[in-house]
Design a protein around this nucleic acid. Structure first.
Length: 417
RNA sequence: GCGGCCGUAGCUUAAUUGGUAAAGCACUCGGUUGUGGUCCGAGAGUUUCUGCGGGUUCGAAUCCCGUCGGUCGCCCCA
């Protein structure tokens, strides 16, 4: 057992082997789909000024209050490891004058994020997300298209997902709704959980998605925000839903969906694959750019947890093993070994990865190796073949062998796999 | 921040009421000539492999306390 002194930090992971293949697949597919929908890849720093997240995510959120990795640099800057992806992108949009480009500007990103929490299933301190953001244009079509892009990504991955959607309204209707909500909750205030009693003042909307049973009973018959949207918000939301219907994207309205981050307005959504936690979520954040010092800029976006997607793929028995048939190159004798090195390069140049075990000398152990690797074909280059300029192709499953000229073997194998 | 469960060789696990710490897999080599999968044998992992530190006991992997780590819930979220 490894020395605990040097173990990886709690909540982090070494990603290799099967897990790495899942990660790769998810990054590949998401990047691909993003490209197809004209999103541009962007990489922002892993760390940002602490203030960026305080302002955008919200001072009162758990993320800022207790989950951020914050540290002071030698120069005295207060930095934070990024706990989420939207704020940095908005920052970058402002800082690089992206408003001068044709709008909307669409970004794709992926990479690690950090939150100091107790790890558990599908939750890590260093976790990974990919996300899409659309800035600079206010149209319900963009909300729907965003959701569609996520939907397509999961479809491509082999996952059937459904969306929960809701609208949180905007400054012209949300305050009124908040008041109504509070009025309706007031009589039962005593029976709400401690958390919710605090929320009642700071963030009453969050009471709606409390998991506490008693709170849920109380909120069951409370007025719903969808019924209290102002005219323009109602129209936008309706339009989003119509487009989702049009594209046959499976969704359900969830009046209790409010999301934990402060910056959302209008559309919010979460993504689910069967039971289990949300794979991702997002929504519209029309006030955020302004909040961070930019000009008034409507925007929407969302992010997906890679680890959770991996879990969902595993549960759905989605296989990511390489289907390509493996070829193993065995050699015997010094001159054959030299030839084998050349041949290896010939295959490599043709884009065919060949397994080998040049460090082993006995044919027997090389064959065993080929078998362990699950090689479909083993090429055997022995002393005799080397002299004659030939090579043996052995089909491992049947044990059938044929001898072919050395300069034809790449072509032959290429045909077989 | 709070709670449940769990730490035995690289991996999966065993050890009867506390009584000499084991097995399988994997790994290396061998079973005469240049051929894998099965089978057989040997080696190594181990000169103390029971996370670490205490305690109880003639004796602790086993019981108790602490601690560290893992895992799963709660809170929250991806």
């Amino acid at each position: 057992m490894a020395d605990q002194e040097f173990q990886k930090p709690t909540g982090t992971q070494d990603i290799f082997d099967k897990k790495q293949r899942y990660f790769n697949k998810i990054y590949e597919v998401s990047r691909d789909i993003a490209y197809q929908y004209n999103f541009e890849t962007i990489e922002t720093p892993i760390m940002e000024k602490e203030a960026l997240f305080k302002r955008s995510v919200g001072e009162s959120t758990d993320i800022v209050q207790k989950e951020m990795y914050v540290f002071e640099t030698k120069g005295g800057d207060r930095l934070a490891l990024r706990p989420e992806g939207t704020a940095p992108i908005v920052r970058s949009y402002i800082e690089n004058d992206f408003y001068k480009k044709p709008q909307p500007v669409k970004f794709y990103y992926c990479g690690p994020f950090f939150r100091y929490e107790r790890p558990q299933k599908g939750r890590y301190r260093q976790f990974h997300q990919f996300g899409l953001e659309v800035l600079g244009k206010d149209s319900p079509a963009l909300d729907s298209q965003l959701i569609r892009a996520f939907y397509q990504t999961f479809e491509e991955l082999g996952l059937e997902v459904t969306f929960k959607v809701n609208s949180l309204g905007d400054d012209s209707c949300r305050p009124d709704y908040k008041e109504q909500l509070k009025e309706s909750l007031e009589p039962d205030l005593e029976d709400l959980c401690k958390n919710c009693q605090e929320r009642f003042e700071n963030n009453p909307l969050r009471i709606l998605d409390c998991k506490n049973e008693e709170c849920q009973e109380i909120t069951e018959n409370v007025p719903q925000i969808v019924d209290h949207l102002c005219k323009s918000c109602k129209k936008k939301f309706k339009s989003v839903l119509e487009l989702l219907d049009e594209m046959e994207i499976p969704y359900e309205l969830d009046p209790f969906l409010v999301r934990g981050l402060d910056y959302y307005t209008n559309t919010v959504f979460e993504i689910f694959a069967g039971k289990g936690p949300a794979l991702g979520g997002g929504g519209r954040y029309d006030k955020l750019v302004e909040l961070l010092g930019g000009r008034e800029t409507p925007a929407c976006g969302g992010a997906v947890g890679v680890e959770r997607t991996v879990d969902a793929m595993r549960e759905a028995d989605i296989d990511v093993t390489e289907k390509r048939k493996k070829v193993f190159l065995a050699q015997l004798g010094n001159s054959a070994k030299k030839k084998a090195f050349e041949l290896f390069e010939d295959f490599r140049k043709e884009g065919i990865p060949v397994y080998e075990s040049m460090g082993r000398d006995s044919l027997k152990s090389q064959m065993a190796r080929a078998d362990k690797l699950g090689a479909e074909y083993t090429l055997i280059l022995g002393r005799q073949e080397c002299i004659k300029g030939q090579i043996i192709i052995r089909e491992m499953k049947s044990g059938k062998q044929e001898t072919v000229p050395l300069d034809k073997v790449v072509k032959k194998i290429k045909k077989k796999i």
